[in-house]
């Protein structure tokens, strides 16, 4: 219960890391759906792009690593030819997440 209350307080970007830790490798669209549902955030196009950008930032900074790429379903982002990636969390990402959950 205490753990859940703590998880509710962490920033959305950290929730993305948490999802990758708990559910393993995932495609961008899957992580997005899970995190938006878990945080009761409106699943609007804007927030979908925000989470895609979080993953890109964290990939650049070594906290997640891209393992595969494909073109996302056009309906998901309401735009054609959007590349989505499959990510896994790295050791650095796990360290950062552990620090946030302390």
């Amino acid at each position: 219960m205490i753990e859940m209350a703590k998880i509710d307080r962490i920033p959305l970007k950290s929730r993305v890391l948490l999802s990758l830790r708990d559910d393993g490798e995932q495609w961008t669209t899957d992580v997005t759906d899970k995190v938006l549902a878990a945080t009761n955030t409106n699943p609007s196009n804007r927030w979908k792009w925000v989470i895609r950008f979080y993953l890109l930032e964290m990939d650049i900074n070594g906290m997640v690593r891209m393992v595969d790429e494909r073109i996302a379903d056009e309906a998901y982002y309401a735009q054609a030819d959007v590349v989505e990636s499959k990510y896994k969390i790295t050791k650095l990402g796990l360290e950062r997440l552990e620090a946030v959950l302390k």
Binding site: D59, R65, T90, L92
Partner: peptide, 8 residues
């Protein structure tokens, strides 16, 4: 690929 060592 990235700016930092990811530890892997």
């Amino acid at each position: 690929d990235g700016l930092r060592d990811s530890g892997e």
